[in-house]
């Protein structure tokens, strides 16, 4: 597979590295940058970052699998994260998750990330998103939605189209 990092992205990552006294520290930020561009962290991306930060691939592989925000497989264009932790659960996040899954034709009992067949949406239950006062909450890519009711969920989904 061809793996090429665009120059702007590489410059961005080079700039990020200068923020830290040790190159290794930049790994999380570099992973964010790469994931922002590619959507997920491929094996080649891991190797690329490791080389960039003068590390071994295992050092990056360890991180990618530790931090749940990093994806090791391609995901949908829109990643929907529904909070499942207590306050949101009390506020109806299970219903929201079920509703979204139903709407997108996914299995609402599944634990892990699922992607629609057209590769447009990925839905996932995640742990606390820290907006417990406005439960239930969800994220669609970087955007945050609070107090999501069924109509609001519809609205968000339509916006993604």
């Amino acid at each position: 597979m061809n793996f090429a990092v665009p120059t702007e992205l590489e410059t961005e990552i080079d700039e990020l590295i200068t923020h830290y006294p040790q190159k290794r520290s930049a790994s999380l930020m570099a992973l964010h940058a790469l994931q922002g561009h590619f959507g997920w962290i491929s094996r080649e991306a891991i190797e690329w970052i490791a080389q960039k930060l003068e590390l071994l691939p295992i050092n990056i592989y360890e991180l990618v699998t530790f931090y749940p925000m990093f994806r090791t497989n391609p995901v949908g264009k829109y990643q929907i994260k529904v909070c499942r932790t207590l306050s949101c659960a009390l506020g109806g996040s299970y219903k929201l998750h079920e509703y979204l899954c139903q709407k997108l034709g996914l299995d609402s009992n599944a634990q892990s990330l699922q992607t629609t067949k057209d590769g447009k949406f990925s839905v996932e239950f995640v742990e606390c998103l820290a907006s417990c006062g406005t439960a239930p909450v969800m994220m669609c890519n970087d955007d945050f939605y609070e107090g999501v009711t069924a109509p609001k969920a519809d609205e968000i989904l339509t916006k993604c189209k």
Partner: peptide, 8 residues
């Protein structure tokens, strides 16, 4: 550094 832990 050949070995490491993955997952959580």
């Amino acid at each position: 550094d050949a070995l490491g832990f993955v997952n959580r």
